[in-house]
Simulated scan of single mutants.
Amino acid sequence: MKTKFKTIVVSDVHLGTKGSKAKEISRFLKQYECENLILNGDIIDGWQLKKSGSWKRKHTRFFNRIIKMIENQNTRVYYLRGNHDDFLDQILPLQIGKLSIQQDMIYESNGKKYFITHGDVFDSITTNLRWIAYIGDVGYTFLLWLNRVLNFYRFKRGLPYFSLSKYVKGKVKSAVSYIDQYEVELAKMARVKGCDGIICGHIHKAEKRMIDGIDYLNSGDWVETMSALAEDHEGNWQLIYYNEINFKSIEEHKIQPLNKEIPQIQYGPFKEVSFGKADDQDLENPSFRL
């Protein structure tokens, strides 16, 4: 049985980049059912696609998973615009069936109101000095490349994954100060909006804590952290990390072996007939298989 949530929030998938964990997030979404799926910005990385990024089948497969959730689970999907997918400005707002594309939203659940936004609108660097934001994006892309090289050798030596960008952020005082200020300003914005909490992304730092009486929730990213926010039907929020999911246990529960022995009855000789096993893929076309 799949775990059922009321709402799942993911952000910063950055489809179109080498660092995007498209296969992992598709596999993640396959394990759960939810009434609402909120894609909170930077799902498609338009900046990288304009420069050196490339669109691959695994990126398309992510959206096929979203379509299946709409069709099979009746999930409502909200795609909120981020700074890397700012090309959506040309079509906002847009409603197609159960898919809504918009700037931000106020989400009400179990007597509480949450202001949901990607978060870049509160980033003065991204908003007012766009060229500096692009330079920062190049630097982060370089760190991700260096991180892949570093972890390739760590993996060969049997060492665990190490996030170079997270280490750098933790050591640079200005970065730590910026993140703290970012979180405080978002909490203030939630209060101005008359909300009990704020749900965001943007800074690639998963978090769940109280700031001056406001619930601050950040879904993290699908480049390194691979995390998501999930709300149960009682209104409780939790952070789920892909690397902490026991997929083997989930698969074992899906296949329940029969305890009863089926009696073998001999009726006579029959021709042998073999049946091919159908694959459960996100696309009908076998060329899109994992």
Rank of each mutant, 00 (worst) to 15 (best):
G220Y: 03
Y161V: 02
L186W: 11
F270A: 11
K18D: 15
N285T: 11
E185W: 10
H59I: 14
G53P: 06
K271N: 13
K4M: 03
I199Y: 10
G201D: 11
Q103L: 07
P263T: 06
C200P: 09
D137E: 15
L88E: 06
T3F: 04
W47V: 03
D104P: 10
R154N: 09
Y114S: 05
K260Q: 14
I250C: 08
L88N: 10
Y267C: 09
G136Y: 06
P286H: 05
H14N: 00
V13D: 03
I135T: 14
E284F: 13
E224Q: 04
E185V: 07
I67H: 05
G19L: 01
I199P: 07
I198V: 12
L94T: 04
I135D: 08
S26F: 01
I96G: 00
L143R: 08
E24A: 14
L49Q: 04
E33A: 12
L80S: 05
S249A: 15
I101L: 14
D137N: 13
Y167D: 06
D212V: 08
D196E: 15
I135K: 14
Q103Y: 08
G201H: 11
S163M: 09
I96T: 08
K271L: 06
R130T: 11
W47S: 02
F28V: 11
N72H: 04
I250M: 12
K205S: 01
A22I: 01
V192D: 07
P286R: 11
F162V: 12
G19V: 00
L99W: 03
E108I: 14
F288V: 13
Y134M: 14
S219R: 07
I96E: 07
V77K: 03
G19D: 02
K23I: 02
G170V: 09
L94E: 02
T60C: 01
D212Y: 14
K98S: 01
E108T: 15
G53L: 01
R154P: 00
D104K: 14
E272S: 06
S124N: 06
H204N: 06
F63H: 03
A22T: 05
I38L: 11
H253G: 07
N218V: 12
I70L: 00
S163E: 03
L150T: 07
E251S: 15
L92E: 13
N110K: 13
R154W: 04
A133H: 05
I101G: 07
L15T: 09
K21Y: 03
K58Q: 10
K50A: 05
R27E: 15
F247K: 14
T117F: 15
G268N: 12
Y134S: 12
G158A: 13
E207L: 00
L15S: 12
K6G: 09
F142H: 05
Q266F: 14
Y78N: 06
I250S: 11
Q181A: 10
I38M: 07
L37T: 02
Q266Y: 05
Y242D: 12
G53F: 05
C34W: 00
I265Y: 03
D232R: 04
F115A: 09
I240A: 04
Q73C: 03
Y167M: 15
Y78Q: 01
Q103A: 01
L258A: 08
I199A: 09
W145C: 10
S287L: 09
E183C: 08
K50L: 04
A278G: 04
G268L: 15
I43S: 02
L99T: 04
Q238G: 08
G16A: 06
S52Y: 12
N72I: 02
K68N: 00
F87W: 10
S20C: 06
R27W: 12
S163D: 03
Y182C: 13
L239W: 10
